[in-house]
Nucleic acid binder design. Structure first.
Lengths: 339, 339
DNA sequence: ATGAAAGCGCTAACAA
DNA sequence: TTGTTAGCGCTTTCAT
């Protein structure tokens, strides 16, 4: 399908050799060819509607100008902005991104990774966790270019671009402390994500710092349902109940909303809730969510920049870029009233 | 980068000819080769960590096993489910999808389209509008396989997969009529989308059917800001105000929420609002949104199915698949009180 | 500045 | 059943 006109068709029409057409049509090499010839070739190409076959070029140059992006799930609202950020850097530089979803399965991840390797992608941006099963380590061993986004590299010396989780959680705890909260609970995300552990650690140390009682409840996934399930469990306990929840991310926080509603509790009057990420529309929720804004688009763009630096400049320094975050106070947190 | 082991390395180790390796490793042709040989080849391939180069294969077979998906903007929440739906059909069949965002610009659309053509994609799924400038028509003329998703093909005989817009709007109007509303306004999306016009037409005819007064206000884009802007304008008018709004989609409806809040009006007590799409989290908004659920994932999967039918079975019938929609009544609509 | 020729890694006709 | 050969469309030495 599509056009059948090749470089030799153009060559014939322009009355030159295919090699010359290639040189004339390539920015890098067009200075090797007579300006008049360049014009003739350009004309011929346009007249024939010639469109270079980048598959063929890729085969010859062993570069596909394609980048693989591996994420858990596109429908998690933090990923679209990250992907658009990646695109915004890559597209103007001639690269195409291919996004795949693992749905949290290591088996999927491996399969998709291999399929992208077969497609000769020039590098990977990993937005997935890093457990023992993850392919991140293997990718590095194989000499494949890669960058972690929104995740730490877990020992593998790939560059990583992350939000300042520690600082974000600390700001949340401080905010709640100032509102008079004394008993907090943190819903920690799955341990396979580096961010989960960083956030939980920061929660604990921040609680200590502000002299608060902080406990941690573990979630199996970053999802609304799991947040609800775990919050249900927290509310079922008979020990002293928290007056505020610091959720591992906005999805979990939303699950907390659901749980509270089911239990006839009001947010924020009965329990304050803080999310993490400031994902799209979290300001439109009921109630508008107090959360930590992570610059998702910038995260994506920066990770793309670091990847191209590896691909094009062979710069393999394992930098770790930490982007600043900001607590956005909305209506899901309020002063504690049972002082 | 990555592996440097080719099909002839495997051939050497297995003591056979490269052609035989190719046949042994391909599902379609492995029955043409001795079972023992197949095993030897497989072993050799595994030992060397051989991974076929699908670029090279694509060059030879002139098929890239890649599909281009052109949408306005991934961060519009209706698209992630559609994309995942597409993937869910394509991935198990060996295809990879490449998603690009036009941001509503015809120039971008054209550029991205050409870049995907150069990459030899086997077909396109168009989720963009269809104005005069759109490349949809040109793509068809060039004999390129394609399918419209969530949009009508606007005269081009590509298959199209859409939700039942007419029925959805009709159900919304009926619902409002039953709640006693008599003066409705519809926020119509940009005319470049076929859906906009279908929904507006259905709004008008449904209002007539139920004996209601219905007016239409035109929006320049499907966005929250535009919904707010247009609703501001509606509220500024001095003629008799509507008691309910039928928004062209959920984003516009969210903009209406914002506008009402700015004007000190309550939803639904002062004005009822109905959205369209039931995009992710619209049940978590403030208030939870009454809206029309469109089966986005199925839309995507079905469009992928129709595309593969064209690619693999050369079936070019321009079917139009209309998927049923369902009104989801939540808390943004209520009985009118100024009877 | 341009032509000639080789070859990227694979598959597919054709032979044997 | 397997080997041989050619070539997908392009880039890139090497000549000229």
């Amino acid at each position: 399908m599509s056009t059948r006109v090749t470089i030799s068709d153009v060559a014939k029409l322009a009355g030159v050799h295919p090699g010359t057409v290639s040189r004339a049509l390539n920015k890098k090499t067009e200075n090797q060819v007579n300006a008049g010839t360049v014009r003739r070739v350009r004309d011929a190409a346009k007249r024939l509607g010639y469109s270079p076959n980048s598959i063929a070029r890729g085969l010859r140059t062993s570069s596909s100008m394609t980048v693989g992006v591996i994420i858990p799930d596109l429908t998690n609202p933090i990923f679209p902005p990250i992907v658009r950020g990646i695109d915004s850097y890559l597209l103007p530089r001639g690269y195409t991104t291919v996004v795949v979803n693992t749905d949290g399965s290591d088996a999927n991840e491996r399969k998709l990774f291999e399929s992208l390797v077969q497609r000769q992608v020039d590098g990977f941006i990993f937005g997935t966790g890093h457990t023992g099963q993850s392919i991140v380590h293997e990718a590095y061993e194989r000499g494949i270019r890669g960058v972690m986004v929104n995740r730490d590299s877990g020992g593998v010396p790939y560059p990583a671009v992350v939000g300042d989780d520690s600082q974000g959680i600390r700001a949340s705890v401080e905010h709640l402390a100032q509102l008079g909260h004394r008993r907090l609970v943190h819903l920690e995300g799955p341990a396979s994500f580096s961010t989960s552990r960083v956030r939980a650690a920061s929660f604990l140390s921040s609680c200590a710092e502000y002299g608060l009682s902080g406990t941690v409840a573990l979630c199996d996934s970053y999802s609304v349902d799991e947040g609800q399930r775990v919050m249900d469990a927290v509310l079922a306990e008979h020990s002293s109940q928290p007056t505020a929840v610091v959720a591992g991310n906005d999805l979990l926080a939303l699950g907390v909303y659901h749980s509270l509603r089911m239990h006839g509790l009001r947010c924020p009057e009965d329990i304050s809730v803080v999310g993490f990420n400031d994902m799209p529309f979290s300001g439109d929720f009921q109630p508008p969510m107090t959360t930590v804004r992570v610059p998702q688009t910038e995260l994506g763009a920066e990770s793309a920049r670091l990847l191209l630096r590896q691909i094009e400049d062979a710069d393999r320094s394992a930098v770790r870029v930490v982007l600043p975050v900001e607590l956005i106070v909305r209506a899901s947190t309020t002063r504690v009233h049972q002082a």
